[in-house]
Design a protein around this nucleic acid. Structure first.
Length: 859
RNA sequence: GCCGGAGUGGCGGAAUGGCAGACGCGGGCGACUUAAAAUCGCUUGGGCAAACCCCGUGCGGGUUCGAGUCCCGCCUCCGGCACCA
């Protein structure tokens, strides 16, 4: 029987609260629209999420990857920021001084494409998008300190990107060189290695070609070892991301060996990780681009044919060489070098499978012990010589083998080294090479220097000028920023409009005052995002990129959250920057992000949402129809953060239904409480009553147990889905309890409602805030301490355990929670069904696990 | 090919080596209603008419009193890398 008095109207009357919708509706329906707007406004007026340095409290820096202002938020953004907001709000309630900022990664190609397609200036397009998306973010009610907002395309920011570039330049970490680089014909710009995916442009999927160009690079390879080593210290990073970075850096130990050329001066340098196989080297291969090629083919009879081959490979190179494992092709140069260990001549070939960009661009080929070399040897009928035998079993037959033996073993056919374990031989041969001055041990990385030049307009200008007299001259600090001119024309030629902007290009040399030309390339936008997390610590700094004290107070980021697609690119560049800045003394932290959470994608119909597939869900529509709290709750409840999330309209309905269920429960029960606030504040009152019935005690147990579960799930595991399901169970239990009507204990209800709303605050901040105020509180729920639980209340006196016979559950048993194993066994044997099952059989053993079960093993 | 991750009801997903399927969605039944929606209960892995029972966490083995969980060998899917010498 339900009390009629459980009406919203009366709830408000009795509590005398000043809550929002009191004045606007008599219906019990939850008006999310009104509630969310009102509180968003109130929070903003009160500057509720403003944060400053406070040495008296522990700091917590929670950061979500800032978005590119593409136009509108998608559900992936909603998910990302909802996750971050739970963390930020939870930590705030836990007493941390939480920095939770947001900004815009605002330089980039889409703005230029929009300029060409819709005849709108990239700047205008970008700023309009930012305005729109900022409104969307505010509509979601994420707890950002908006005073810290900035966009990377603003001169106040990119001035410091340029300033940092100059510091890199001074330290020799920014340099210019001519190199064969990746070129995307569609984007009409060069790309870093990291931006080429399977031979295609990461952004537009166009096949990437190569070009010889003079470009700016960052010397990230100088930091390869530190970037690799320090991965071991990042215990809060997913193993997967660390593995990807390790592979990308690709450290390998080997030996550079100089093979003297036969009949002429000089030598051919190769890099190998298997010096122990040198006696098996039957030919050499150099990359078509190798500088020695012209010399090597000088006297070859079919010189023209060889040249044609080289050109063919270079062309093939552009299309297929990286995208698929094509056939290995090559041609003999006509030249030989001498194997310094055997003295025999070895033919030098040119081959498509050797890359100029790795090692020395030349290899010694050991077909018996390297699959690629074996493939090539079989194709051109080159000799195969086995020099490593397996530790056990027979050595492969050189004449017939089709699979190279690449494992360690015992050296054979290797002169004085024969009989040695190959690993030992590795060192002995390396020593011998060094002793004879024919090379040295060395470490080789797969990682290349970071190509940062872009032949595009909408990016941060590289602050250098070219002077006929003085060469490359950095722009002096006091002339920064080098402003991106706004009055430029966009044509679909792919040519950067900066090239045609005479006022920009024509300048004077800061050194000699003579005429000079400005650099017209801009920086890769990954440069902008490599230090933004530091700027958030001091976003308005005017005399430096950020103040060291503030940076040192906030850094490193305690929790970083974003998509796994940035596992290599952004996350490695940012680590590189942080280390350089630490070396420069600008910031102390060696690593930028202590803990990393890589969220899964939002899928629909099993595929990533994309415009081209037409399976997108618009964040605005969902928020308009269900409200921000529902949108957030759905993304948090449907899957754990790191997994992919399959979109479900029914799931959104479910989230909405739950919030309404909470709304009804709390508003109705609030009416039951006289002076709700007083009771709610006094949780202890619920505990000291001998007046508590069994049902009251049980309800209290559920309340405290829920606090325990939610705290654990959020704090230790970031499992928001199970945290929310625990809250759902509490609500279900409350509905059961509510059936008791007047028999309910008011102190228990008050305590339960209070804790429920507090638990809900990080997940559904608007609803929680509204209910909190309706319960008679004046201060924001988001400023309250996180609820605690009493372990004594959680504990039960009696528990139900399973009783198994031979591992199968046959019965259940209610027993004292602290019963001894002996008591458990005895009680189990008393059971009717156990006696029947045991009758006439031998009990082999009995296992009793306190709190769990008893297992009786019979024969 | 190499390196990760994942395979659990109709679906999303839960389970420190200890009662598989929490919670939600969907379904079924009931209450309220003239009726429907909403809401509130109850119910819902499969087999059997049902009880008891049997079978169930991708497949095949193993360890264990006890395995979704640990070990060995496979299969499938997803992600990353891919001539890196």
């Amino acid at each position: 029987m339900r009390r009629k008095a459980f009406s919203l109207l009366e709830a408000c009357w009795e509590t005398g609260c000043m809550a929002v919708s009191q004045t606007m509706t008599k219906s019990t329906a939850y008006d999310f629209e009104q509630v969310e707007r009102t509180w968003q406004q109130r929070w903003e007026e009160q500057d509720l999420y403003r944060v400053d340095e406070d040495p008296s409290r522990p700091k917590y820096y929670c950061l979500e990857m800032f978005p590119y202002p593409s136009g509108r938020l998608h559900m992936g953004h909603v998910r990302n920021y909802s996750i971050g907001d739970v963390v930020a709000r939870f930590k705030r309630m836990r007493g941390y001084n939480v920095l939770h900022p947001m900004g815009w990664d605002a330089f980039g190609l889409p703005a230029e494409n929009a300029a060409i397609q819709h005849n709108i200036h990239p700047s205008k397009w970008t700023w309009e998008n930012i305005d729109f998306m900022r409104r969307q973010l505010k509509r979601l009610g994420i707890s950002y300190d908006w005073r810290r907002e900035f966009a990377s395309c603003h001169p106040d920011y990119y001035k410091w990107t340029q300033w940092l570039f100059l510091r890199f330049y001074e330290r020799g970490l920014a340099y210019r060189k001519r190199a064969s680089v990746n070129w995307c014909p569609n984007c009409a710009t060069v790309l870093a290695n990291e931006q080429v995916v399977q031979g295609r442009c990461e952004r537009c999927d166009t096949e990437v070609t190569t070009r010889e160009l003079e470009q700016w690079f960052f010397r990230i390879t100088d930091y390869a070892d530190r970037l690799l080593e320090d991965l071991d210290r990042l215990e809060g990073w997913p193993e997967k991301v660390k593995t990807m970075q390790r592979n990308w850096i690709g450290k390998s130990y080997g030996v550079e060996i100089h093979f003297p050329l036969q009949g002429r001066d000089g030598h051919l340098a190769v890099f190998t990780t298997r010096p122990d196989t040198i006696f098996g080297a039957t030919y050499m291969v150099v990359a078509p681009e190798h500088p020695l090629v012209d010399t090597l083919i000088e006297d070859a009879p079919g010189k023209d044919e060889i040249r044609r081959f080289i050109e063919d490979v270079k062309k093939q190179d552009e299309i297929a060489r990286t995208s698929e494992e094509g056939d290995k092709v090559g041609v003999f140069t006509g030249s030989y070098c001498i194997n310094p260990f055997t003295g025999e001549p070895i033919p030098i070939w040119i081959g498509n499978y050797v890359l100029m960009g790795y090692g020395t661009g030349a290899i010694m080929a050991v077909p018996a012990h390297d699959q690629r070399d074996l493939d090539f040897a079989r194709a051109y009928d080159l000799p195969v010589r086995v020099v490593i035998a397996p530790p056990e079993g027979e050595a492969p037959d050189a004449a017939t083998m089709t699979e190279a033996y690449a494992e360690p073993g015992v050296m054979v056919n290797s002169g004085p080294f024969s009989g040695l374990p190959s690993q030992e031989g590795w060192q002995r041969i390396a020593e011998e090479i060094e002793r004879r001055g024919m090379g040295r041990r060395r470490v080789q990385y797969r990682l290349r220097d970071w190509l940062i030049s872009r032949q595009r307009y909408w990016g941060c200008p590289i602050p250098v000028v070219y002077c006929g007299h003085c060469g490359i001259v950095p722009v002096p600090d006091d002339e920064l920023p080098v402003l991106l001119p706004e009055d430029v024309a966009f044509k679909p030629t792919g040519r950067s409009p900066l090239l045609d902007h005479a006022e920009f290009v024509q300048t004077t040399c800061p050194k000699c005052g003579g005429p000079a030309k400005r650099e017209t390339d801009t920086m890769d936008t990954f440069v902008d995002s490599s230090w933004y997390f530091l700027r958030f610590a001091d976003p308005h700094a005017a005399d430096g990129p950020f103040g060291k004290e503030k940076a040192d107070y906030w850094m490193p980021v305690d929790q970083y959250i974003g998509g796994v697609e940035h596992a290599i690119l952004h996350l490695m560049y940012a680590r590189f920057f942080q280390k350089v800045l630490a070396d420069m003394g600008l910031s102390t932290a060696q690593e930028p992000f202590t803990n990393l959470l890589t969220q899964g994608m939002v899928l629909k119909d099993g595929a990533k949402m994309s415009k081209s597939k037409g399976n997108t869900v618009d964040a605005d529509e969902i928020v308009a129809k269900y409200g921000a709290d529902t949108a957030r709750l759905f993304t948090l409840f449907t899957a754990p953060p790191e997994r992919d999330l399959e979109w479900s309209d029914a799931g959104v309905e479910g989230a909405s239904r739950f919030l309404n269920r909470v709304w009804r429960l709390v508003t109705e029960l609030a009416a039951f409480l006289p002076g709700a606030a007083a009771g709610a504040q006094n949780g202890a009152a619920a505990g000291n009553g001998a007046a508590l019935t069994e049902a009251d005690r049980q309800m209290r147990r559920v309340i405290h147990r829920t606090v325990q579960r939610v705290t654990k799930d959020v704090e230790e595991r970031f499992h928001f889905n199970t945290a929310i399901s625990a809250i759902m169970e509490l609500v279900n239990a409350f509905y059961q309890y509510k059936e008791r009507g007047d028999a309910m204990n008011r102190a228990v209800v008050a305590e339960g409602l209070q804790k429920l709303v507090l638990l809900l605050a990080p997940f559904a901040p608007h609803l929680a805030e509204e209910l909190w105020h309706r319960m008679g509180h004046e201060e924001s729920v988001h400023l309250q301490p996180w609820p605690d639980f009493d372990p004594d209340v959680v504990r039960t006196e009696e528990i139900e355990i399973a009783v198994q016979i031979n591992g199968r559950v046959r019965d259940r048993l209610v027993i004292d929670a602290d019963a001894s194993q002996e008591e458990m066994k005895a009680a189990a044997l008393e059971l009717e069904r156990v006696r029947a099952a045991v009758e006439g059989r031998e009990i082999v053993r009995i296992v009793a696990v306190p709190g769990r079960l008893v297992n009786i093993v019979v024969k």
